[in-house]
Design a binder for these strands. Structure first.
Lengths: 163, 163
DNA sequence: GGTATTTTACTCGGATAGTCTATGTCCGAGTGAGTCTGG
DNA sequence: CCAGACTCACTCGGACATAGACTATCCGAGTAAAATACC
């Protein structure tokens, strides 16, 4: 039970995309260099985000990605699900139906397995936190942590990279 | 982000082991046949549970595993962690430290990344549910779902298999 | 000078290898029950 | 009949293959900007 690195990358990139002025596109190349991660592979995560309509991309010079919605309208769950898929963390195999005492005909579940139910509750608790946590909250948190001069330098660095 | 099948197997086996009278050992072979899962691989999950002191095993004829504690004293989290490991679901890579604007000397994190913090909160919510859900709750849930005659037949099946 | 056209360099997007964990299988060391033997 | 020693089948435990998923990389189709030619 482990999340891939793409999740971290995706959230950081979304946070950065949310900071640039409207209408500005940032290419994968710049996002990758800024975060020090492999460009080609990051591309896959961004593709997933684009497919989920969280960002949209444009081709050609001055192209790249921009955020598709306001940060307050994007939850972390959407980002995580876009990258990792929306399947539940626990997949019930219904091994209780393998019980040799069970008559052959009743090989179908009529209720949710108690084990699966418990695991689904845990899964839902996890999702609930991510659903209520918005991208805007992340931005606020980062603002509180990063010193203003570093933030300004970063903004400037991005600007230069776009030319 | 997906849990392995071993988790499901482990919980079902624990539930079964909790139903057997004190002092009775059930071998992997029987557990595997009853649940219709590969014996050899299930063995790995049971080994993990034994290592975590949730069950203990005995060798020789009439050997096998028995539960080590009362079901009300065993949480699902313990079972899951025994099988899947206790590492967090999200591992922060600190890619924020790759920021090219960051002075070389300050390449160390002095606070928890806002992204990681959010993910950890979700992780903890998931754990909390599993921590509060005891094995005894699962047993109660199964009792409510399984018809008495099937339960009796299963008990009898296990008994026969032990001879 | 302004506009339409062409070029062009840059972007995303999907198809392609490598690596690591999860899955499934195998056999050997150890042990406790059952059996046999002797008193 | 009972006690002790022995045999032996059965157990767990760890070492050994296989499969799927995650990670990383490449190149081509498409496009929007920029340069160019023309009016």
């Amino acid at each position: 039970m482990k999340l891939g690195n793409q999740v971290e990358w995706a959230i950081h990139c979304m946070e950065l995309l949310a900071r640039v002025p409207d209408g500005v596109y940032i290419p994968t190349k710049v996002l990758a260099k800024f975060h020090g991660i492999p460009k080609e592979y990051l591309s896959k995560a961004l593709q997933a985000l684009a497919l989920a309509k969280l960002i949209d991309g444009t081709l050609g010079p001055k192209g790249g990605y921009r955020i598709a919605r306001k940060p307050s309208k994007i939850s972390l769950l959407e980002i995580v699900e876009a990258v990792e898929g929306s399947k539940k963390t626990f997949h019930c195999q219904e091994i209780r139906l393998n019980n040799p005492c069970l008559p052959k005909k009743r090989k179908q579940a009529d209720s949710i397995c108690a084990v699966a139910s418990a695991m689904y509750q845990a899964d839902e608790a996890w999702r609930k936190v991510l659903r209520e946590k918005k991208l805007s909250d992340i931005i606020r948190g980062v603002d509180r942590q990063v010193p203003p001069e570093l933030m300004a330098a970063s903004t400037h660095w991005i600007q230069s990279a776009l030319d």
